[in-house]
């Protein structure tokens, strides 16, 4: 008994020493990861309002505005323990700050692929659900046409007959939610912790549906067939850079 009593303080002390959570106990395993988004049109860089690009349907076009949401990011670990983000990111291709998606407490390790949505899932696609920033308010999809938010606003001009005309590819409503998948392996193991994603804008018009702005519709809003094709094509718009 005496021995136990004499040992007890040591035991308590050891317990205390181990009870305080130290940063260094966590840091090596969980990191803040930046997913950096950039843009291309096949091999060309995105330069707003100037370069004319050609899509799979042969439309010659340029881009004036590109805004969208990315949500439900899941990083799939090779051992099936997935990292799931509940954040909804507003992205304006013109505003560099919005093109850095910061994910907190991401486990380091080897990942097999990434999935996410372009848009907002039905449980959260409700007008004024998001913080009322000016950007979010401008993305609201009018209640009279279903409510929620625009998932995508991609606008510009394209050559039409002998002149140019405008186009506005908008996605909204729950049926237009885009399910993206990037099937590249990658490893998060050393700082700076970041992965580079590229949106190839021509993919919006390419596969599985060759989308022609002239014949499939230069304005998608209110046209469920057009939005359906664009949303399906959206599955392939992102890839990892240098992979």
């Amino acid at each position: 008994m005496k021995t136990i009593i004499k040992l007890l303080p040591i035991l308590i002390f050891v317990t205390i020493l181990n009870s305080c959570k130290r940063d260094k106990d966590i840091v090596p395993e969980k990191v803040n990861l930046n997913m950096n988004v950039s843009y291309s049109i096949d091999a060309l860089p995105l330069i707003f309002d100037s370069i004319m690009y050609t899509n799979a349907a042969g439309n010659v076009y340029e881009i004036t505005r590109l805004e969208y949401y990315i949500s439900n990011i899941v990083l799939h670990l090779a051992n099936d323990e997935n990292y799931v983000s509940k954040d909804i990111f507003y992205i304006n291709a013109m505003d560099q700050n919005t093109n850095i998606l910061n994910l907190k407490n991401v486990p380091t390790g080897k990942y097999s692929y990434i999935t996410f949505n372009i848009g907002i899932d039905s449980t959260r696609n409700i007008s004024y659900y998001l913080t009322n920033t000016a950007e979010n308010i401008n993305m609201i999809w009018p209640t009279y046409m279903g409510g929620g938010y625009h998932f995508l606003k991609m606008e510009g001009h394209f050559n039409y007959a002998s002149s140019t005309t405008g186009y506005a590819v908008h996605l909204g409503k729950n049926s237009s939610l885009v399910s993206c998948s990037i099937n590249n392996e990658f490893t998060i193991d050393q700082a700076p912790y970041q992965i580079e994603m590229v949106m190839n804008i021509n993919e919006w018009y390419k596969s599985p549906y060759t989308y022609n702005l002239d014949t499939d519709g230069s304005f998608t809003m209110g046209d469920m067939v057009a939005m359906g094709k664009i949303a399906a094509n959206g599955a392939n718009v992102f890839s990892l850079k240098n992979n």
Binding site: D49, G166, Y167
Partner: peptide, 16 residues
């Protein structure tokens, strides 16, 4: 008026 910088939204076919 249709000019090079006219906002794309004005080109809706039904609004031409």
């Amino acid at each position: 008026n249709n000019t090079a910088t006219l906002d794309p939204i004005f080109f809706k076919p039904s609004h031409l």
